[in-house]
Every structure is written in C-alpha cells, then in structure tokens.
C-alpha cells in the first residue's frame, strides 16, 4: 500500500517487528486487546471488504481456542460445570480466549505486513547487508515463472500430441524432470557467465536508489522507543498477568498499555493524513 511508500522500506519492517515481538510473547489481555484493535483497524483501512474473510477466520480461532482449552487444562478455582470428573473452569476458558486472541492478532498483523511490505522491500533492505542471500532469493523469484512457463509449454505439447487431459502423477513427474534437465544446463551457463564477469571478486559496490532520510530515522526511533518502553514495563513486572489459580487483579499499567496502544495505531496517522490531503487539498491549478 502507498501509505508507507514515502518511507525507507526498513521503517515498516522495524515497526512490524516491534509490534509483533510484544504481541507474540505477552499474556496480558490489555496488551492483546490493543494489538487486536490496532490490527483490525489497519486491516480494514488497507484491505477494506477483502479483510472480512480473515476476520471471520480469526473469530473462529478465538472461539475454538477458548472453548477447547478448558478440556485440556483443569487449573483454576471457578468451576463452571463438570465434564465427567474434570472441571470446566472460567480461568481456563479465559486463558484459551487470550491464546486465541494472540493467535488471531498474529494472523491479522501478518496479513497487514504482507500487504505493506513487498518482496522488493525485503530485497532492498537485505541486499546490502546479506548480498548473497538477496542474490539467491532474487534468482529463485526469477526462475519460478520461467520454470512454470516451460512446464506449461511441455504440457501443451503433450496435449497437442493427443495426451489425455486428466492429471496424473507419472506424467507430471516426467514433465517436471524434463524441466529440470532443460533448465540445469541453461543455469550452468549463467554461472559460467557470472564467473566470466568477475563474480566473487572484491571491491564490488552497491547502489541504492533511495537515500535514508531524517524522517526515516525519526519514524524508526519512534517505534523503537515505544517498544522499549513496553519491554521495560514487562521486565519490571508491571504488566504481568496470570490466570491461574485466580485471575490476577493487576496487570493494567496505564503508561505501558497506553504506549503499546499508541504503537499499534500509529500508522493510522499517515492513512488519515493522506486521505484528508487527497480529499480536501486538491492540487493548485
């Protein structure tokens, strides 16, 4: 999506790392609610109606995890009812719901991540630091469409010579192997060509189209600062929360929860800003 386009690709990646690193490991329901809220709002802003399917799936995950956890875990003091001899406790139910929430928010955040961070961004970030890995990944991404085209070509040739349309394991394997045999030779030519042009020599340079600006640094510092604040509060035990044997009375720290909420909904600022600019500030003619 275009909302983060003005930033260096490392900015959204740092942001998602900050958000998800807390949301994976916390058991605190307030933090989970923040993550879920931020994720749902962002997802709806970015994907609109397409997001509904994922939201339904997340609801189902929360419901299933909540309902089944008490079947495995019998800790907790408030018995709701008994199944056979085992108690079905309120605490286990709530713990299941909280687990469901963390899984659902992860699903939602990953979906937002996939919508915002593209393959090109990942390559742009790692191309300088991990040149070999980035080179191999971009080669793979280049080979896949070529291989698919070759495979389809061979398949159509088979159709044209009167083979049946039914898919069979044997025929797919034969075509697949033919693809490999064809492509392996071609690929070795690529490697000879790389070698001939001086691959692996020292003093190679790296060029990037975009420069790292002050606003990028500010955005990264903002996400990291909020994330560190949250981790400090977690480390101090202000955000500890437990379900067993009885629900914990504390765990709500306005400052810690507030900073995480701010972190989760901060991209909204850019979305709202862009939309307002688009709507109310038409270009001067």
């Amino acid at each position: 999506m275009c909302y983060f386009r003005t930033f260096d690709p490392i900015v959204p990646m740092t942001y998602f790392l900050c958000v998800m690193s807390i949301c994976v490991f916390t058991a605190n329901p307030y933090l989970q609610a923040c993550a879920l809220l931020g994720g749902v709002v962002l997802l709806l802003c970015i994907k609109k109606a397409k997001a509904l399917k994922l939201l339904a799936l997340s609801l189902a995950v929360i419901a299933v995890m909540g309902a089944t956890n008490p079947l495995f875990v019998h800790r907790g003091l408030t018995d709701l009812f008994y199944i056979g001899k085992d108690p079905y406790t309120l605490e286990a139910l709530l713990y299941g719901l909280s687990l469901g929430c963390s899984i659902a928010s992860l699903l939602i955040w990953f979906s937002v991540f996939n919508a915002i961070v593209t393959q090109d961004d990942i390559l742009a970030v790692f191309g300088k630091r991990l040149p070999k890995t980035a080179l191999v990944i971009s080669m793979i991404l280049g080979f896949i469409p070529k291989l698919r085209r070759k495979y389809t070509e061979l398949l159509h040739a088979q159709y044209a010579s009167g083979a049946s349309r039914r898919k069979s394991l044997h025929r797919s394997a034969v075509l697949f192997i033919a693809c490999l045999a064809y492509e392996a030779e071609r690929v070795m030519d690529i490697s000879m060509s790389m070698k001939a042009r001086g691959y692996g020599l020292k003093d190679r340079t790296h060029a990037q189209r975009r420069r790292f600006r002050k606003s990028d640094a500010a955005a990264i510092a903002f996400s990291l600062a909020l994330c560190i604040v949250c981790f400090v509060f977690i480390g101090k035990g202000r955000l500890d929360y437990w379900y067993y044997p009885r629900l914990s009375p504390n765990g709500f720290d306005p400052f810690g929860v507030g900073s995480y909420l701010l972190l989760c909904i901060s991209p909204l600022f850019f979305i709202v800003k862009e939309k307002t600019l688009w709507r109310y500030c038409p270009a001067k003619t």
């Binding site: 793979i140 693809c179 492509e183 790389m194 070698k195």
Partner: peptide, 27 residues
C-alpha cells in the same frame, strides 16, 4: 554462509533447486 566464499555454480544450483521445489509444490 554469507562470509564464506562460494563459487558461482553453488549459488546458481541452490537457486535452481529451490525454484524447482517451489514449482513442485505448485505443480
């Protein structure tokens, strides 16, 4: 892996075989 010097054929074979197994997952 990044720090080790590896010949060009190794990178190319890695890329080809990974692409083949992704293709296999699709095909």
């Amino acid at each position: 892996y990044e720090k080790k010097s590896s010949p060009a054929w190794e990178l190319v074979i890695i890329a080809l075989m990974s692409a083949m197994s992704v293709l296999g997952r699709i095909v």
